[in-house]
Design a protein around this nucleic acid. Structure first.
Length: 490
RNA sequence: GGUCUCUUGGCCGAGUGGCUAGGCACCGGUCUGCAAAACCGUCUACUCCGGUUCGAGUCCGGAAGAGACCUCCA
């Protein structure tokens, strides 16, 4: 690999050189959504962050297997024994089969991801499709003595595990502190310790989602699915595990414990965590009632939104911040992102209009290498974007007549923009192309030709009227020396 | 309460011992019949208090404020 990628490993809290276990193959597992509600802004961040990583790894020449799961069972409302499964709860409220809920919201999630130009993962496994494997892993953990059965449920014995290994190494927690600080929750009677977590839960009589097992008719614990499905598809040890920072504890900590307890070694080599999106400085959360669904963003229907924001605006907005920083949402910030992105796309388009000169008189200064360097420095997309903006200035000033670019350099700019803007950052021009687009184009050209005629008669009242009305509809009119240009803004 | 993180200009957001981040907004100019777009230019920073250093927004210590996790969340 000609570019050396370093990524921040949460396990060591350092940037580390990324060296795959079995190059050129590399495995990436990311915690996907629990499909019990519409996808929201918070889902977009890990999806886009790891889509970026997926795209970049592929671009560096790795053969990437990207596994992103769908959680459709076992994710409880809280950690108490009485906690209800999120999917089951939604099913009960809406009087549907749990799998109808799963189907519905999985499709909603996929549609939103498509709009955001998030590539499909290589494999998208479901927890409910891996019940047997989960049971096998539970048995392994039981056999190794790190779990216990109680009334048909199986729990992970954290205290015992901690005697041989270190529970809390990922999140920087110390078990003694946890013991001192964990709150007592109702219905924890079956656990030996409050921080023990369920591997298998016996289903109460009214619980619909249930599978037979040697312990009871029940369902697997939430943390288990990721341990099982990641190693099933990527091997006992694999390269990268990603997810949101909020999953660091307890979810990912439990995953490590499960893998070590079952197979005697850790499964994950690099842990990566994206930071949260905040709204007015506060984390978006279901319980806080301040979360915005992606559809609401795309349509501008949420009360916090002053306008609709296109999927690419959202994507660009997210990429303008580094994935490990919190990103604060506001209309102002999104509007800035919208304009900035348009500026980048416009500059790319105007490359086609530049006439090549014999030689280049502007500074190109190793744009391609600078972009690669920024990407390879723990996916520093804000820097990549800043470099592209520097080139926008170059392109525009040449287009405006100051300086010149050779054919080779125009091609280089086109290639670098295409590579980083479209292939790696995953942005795309948002055209409103429809079947009528050609007709529309002709109609608009007709209007603007009329305006030209009016202008030549110095009939500015008419010409302004045409332009103003078109602007009102959403067109952007630009007069040129020998004609006009127009675009239809979303 | 415990653990951890953050505090950059009007807004968003990089950087991390010395050299302009970038975007958006604003302002001045060029272009235009007027605009828009584009171009040129200007302005606005590093929470506070100590320390280390020739030099700190950047390292160390302290204070204040904010946030995250510890409980469902991406």
């Amino acid at each position: 690999m000609e570019h050396i990628l370093s990524i921040f490993n949460t396990l060591t809290r350092k940037k580390e050189l990324f060296v795959p276990l079995n190059p050129p193959f590399t495995g990436l597992y990311v915690c996907g959504p629990t499909v019990y509600g519409d996808p929201h802004l918070g889902h977009a961040r890990p999806a886009i962050t790891f889509d970026l990583l997926f795209r970049y790894l592929k671009n560096l020449g790795y053969k990437v297997r990207y596994v992103r799961n769908i959680t459709d069972v076992g994710h409880l409302e809280n950690d108490a024994d009485a906690g209800e499964d999120k999917i089951a709860k939604k099913a009960r409220i809406e009087q549907l089969e749990p799998m109808e809920i799963v189907q519905h919201y999985t499709e909603r999630y996929h549609k939103a991801m498509d709009k955001l130009n998030v590539l499909s993962p290589s494999i998208e496994p479901r927890a409910s499709g891996h019940i047997i494997e989960q049971q096998q892993m539970i048995q392994q953990i039981l056999d190794n003595g790190f779990a216990y059965e109680k009334n048909g449920s199986v729990y992970f014995d954290v205290e015992k595990y901690n005697k041989s290994y270190s529970y809390g190494k990922l999140s920087g927690r110390i078990l003694e502190d946890l013991m001192a600080n964990t709150r007592e929750l109702d219905g924890q009677g079956e656990k030996r310790n409050p921080f023990d977590f369920a591997l298998w839960k016996k289903a109460s009589p009214e619980h619909i989602m249930r599978w037979p097992s040697k312990w009871s008719d029940g369902f697997p614990g939430w943390h288990l699915e990721c341990s099982v499905m990641s190693t099933r598809y990527l091997g006992e040890v694999f390269d990268i595990h990603g997810g949101g920072m909020d999953l660091l504890f307890p979810h990912h900590e439990c995953e490590i414990a499960q893998s070590v307890a079952a197979q005697g070694k850790e499964a994950v080599r690099y842990w990566m965590h994206n930071n949260m999106i905040t709204i007015n400085g506060q984390k978006m959360g279901k319980s806080l009632g301040n979360f915005i669904t992606l559809d609401e963003l795309f349509n501008g229907t949420h009360k916090l939104l002053v306008q609709a924001y296109s999927p690419m605006t959202i994507r660009f907005f997210i990429l303008q911040a580094h994935y490990r920083s919190t990103l604060d949402f506001s209309n102002e910030a999104l509007q800035a992102a919208e304009k900035g992105m348009q500026r980048l796309l416009n500059a790319y388009a105007s490359l086609d209009k530049i006439t090549a000169a014999d030689k280049t008189t502007v500074d190109m200064a190793g744009l391609r290498q600078k972009c690669f360097d920024a990407m390879s420095d723990d996916l520093n997309t804000p820097i990549v974007i800043a470099h592209l903006f520097d080139s926008v200035k170059t392109i525009n000033s040449v287009a405006a007549g100051s300086g010149s670019l050779s054919k080779e350099d125009i091609d280089e700019l086109r290639n670098v923009f295409s590579l980083f803007l479209f292939d790696i950052l995953g942005l795309q021009a948002e055209t409103n192309s429809s079947d009528n687009s050609k007709t529309l184009e002709e109609v608009v050209n007709l209007m603007l030709n009329l305006r030209m005629e009016a202008k030549s008669r110095k009939d500015f009242e008419t010409s302004d009227k045409i332009r103003n009305e078109l602007t009102k509809i959403g067109f952007e009119i630009k007069d040129k020396k020998d004609g006009f240009e127009w675009t239809l803004k979303v």
